[in-house]
Write a protein that binds this DNA or RNA. Structure first.
Lengths: 127, 127
DNA sequence: ATAAATGCAAACGCTTTGCGAGTGC
DNA sequence: GCACTCGCAAAGCGTTTGCATTTAT
């Protein structure tokens, strides 16, 4: 019952690929165009929002006015360079049992979290 | 040399007030209009961006597409209810010495961070 | 006169949606 | 024929900016 969907498929492959883990819709669009020759931004957008509803990817807000998406497996945090804007993944979860302490202090049951460090990357520090 | 600036002053008072610590530009605008009778959104916007440059307030991104601002003193984190969207401040910094561990794992020197928990607030859990 | 604060309106950037056309099944 | 994907274009929405006006010094 499903028709071939080259654009959506390509978006999925991009997320599945190991090279990059954090994508803006724009970057995805560019990559899809590069791979398929042509693709519409809105099609990429719909593929992405579909995947988000499925739960296979989720939004990451880097505070730069653009929405980013990341594959759901392997939760982790990010750190962004104040200078060049580069974003790097912070291996491991820095917040192991913070949720219980948050629960006692606020009464909220923590379901998820998103942490963004900012700092200066080695390259920028070297300048 | 300075002219009276009722709008900017009002914005500053709002941040100085203890009642609310997290403001969207929209909310600030509404509050200023309520207090002064009239004020332009762009004027509030300019007051806010000025304060941000001064360093007296800083942006907080709650991932809802709007920019929020918060007074700089007393760094802390936030938790937002998945259900009703309510945002509550998490007392204390949950990340005491995470920065050194981040530094060893990524090489970045951490200058700041922003953490957003999401969860379910007591009221919504009661439903 | 000068410089600052403000209001108004339009531009902008990115996200989101409506709709019609194309196409496997 | 049907359901689904796609492309195109426009609408939204919040942020940002240009410009003219007002006003205290």
């Amino acid at each position: 019952m499903a028709r071939p969907s080259p654009v959506s498929d390509q978006v999925r492959s991009l997320f599945a690929a190991e090279q990059k883990h954090l994508w803006s819709i724009d970057e995805l669009h560019e990559a899809v165009v590069g791979a398929l020759g042509a693709a519409d931004y809105s099609t990429v957008f719909r593929a992405v929002t579909g995947m988000e509803k499925e739960g296979s990817i989720h939004r990451i807000d880097l505070g730069d006015g653009k929405v980013h998406y990341e594959i759901s497996e392997g939760h982790h945090e990010h750190i962004r360079c104040d200078d060049c804007g580069r974003v790097v993944e912070v291996p491991g979860c820095v917040l192991e049992d913070a949720s219980t302490s948050v629960r006692t202090s606020t009464g909220f049951v923590v379901t998820s979290h998103q942490l963004l460090f900012t700092g200066v990357c080695p390259e920028c520090a070297a300048k």
